[in-house]
Amino acid sequence: MKVEQRPADSKSKEALTDKASLLNLYREMLLIRRFEEKTAEMYQLAKIGGFCHLNIGEEATIVGTISALRQTDYVYSTYREHGHAIAKGIDPKAVMAELFGKETGTSHGRGGSMHLFSADRRFYGGYAIVGEALPIACGSGYAINYKGTDEIVMSSFGDGATNIGAFHESLNVAKLWHLPIVFVCVNNLYGMGTAVNRASAVTEIWKKACAYDMTSERVDGMDVLAVRRITDQLVAQAREKHEPSLLECVTYRYRGHSMSDPDTYRGKDEIKEWQTRDPILSLGEHMKKQKMLTDEEIERIDEEITAQVEDAVKFAEESPDPDPKDLYRDVYAGEGAA
């Protein structure tokens, strides 16, 4: 699918020309890539159970959006959220430990791959029901306005979520109540195995915001700089004007829907074509051209990050399982009620 981009005027182009900023984006994307590759390996070794959905291919969309936020801003995500959690600043060790089901994981082994969480990082969770988190994100937005603080909320979801009622109810009240939310649609062109044009009457998701008179943009989700520039603008609009927006990032997941997906519904050529636009390689090339990075540095960064991921696995391996006596802990707050 060819991505038609609507022009987006960015205030933050300046901020994205310095080496330190670009290097941060590069490292974050590579960390997610290597983390997810390792996750696949660990899944195949049966170290990780349940369903497991990888972010490989979507790194520019994740890092381009979440890097525009403050630590106190809220992020709501889906069951495909390892990368979002890491980008929001959760230690990869705690993420891997959660995938391993360990007590040291983000959710103490109670959640697993689909339910990462961190109050401290305001990563307000991975939700495994398509579209469920959008109304909840609106609640955080309402609380921000209620308290008169200046955080914002980012609600991230797939193209499939835009066909359910909760999406429309959420956009409606976000606009009606002036909620400081950026809705980010990670359009990876498939809702499980169903292509977006087989599930949605409107295949350009950004257009769905028109019904709510809401700012909306479509961006090449494989280009981290483009994603970041437009996100900066939409975040500023949410923070300063309390106006919500919908950002459609057109991207692609290189792997199947989950680890158990045989991937029979799309052609190998299609996957290869998207891989030629790889977000990490593209940014690396761009930085080399700008004389900001050399092949040797790229190799060194990769080694560092690979070691960081190995450390995460080691931490997860060595961490204890939850104690069986704690089975009932945290069903209720503040007591041990059954």
């Binding site: 307000y124 109304p135 994100a137 609106c138 609640g139 309402y142 209620y146 909760a166 009606l176």
Partner: peptide, 22 residues
């Protein structure tokens, strides 16, 4: 807060607000 007649957004908004200190 008067809401639209849309039950899912009512409960969802309440949950998110509750998680965010209200």
């Amino acid at each position: 807060l008067d809401t639209p007649i849309a039950e899912e957004i009512i409960i969802g908004t309440a949950i998110g607000a509750a998680m965010s200190g209200l």
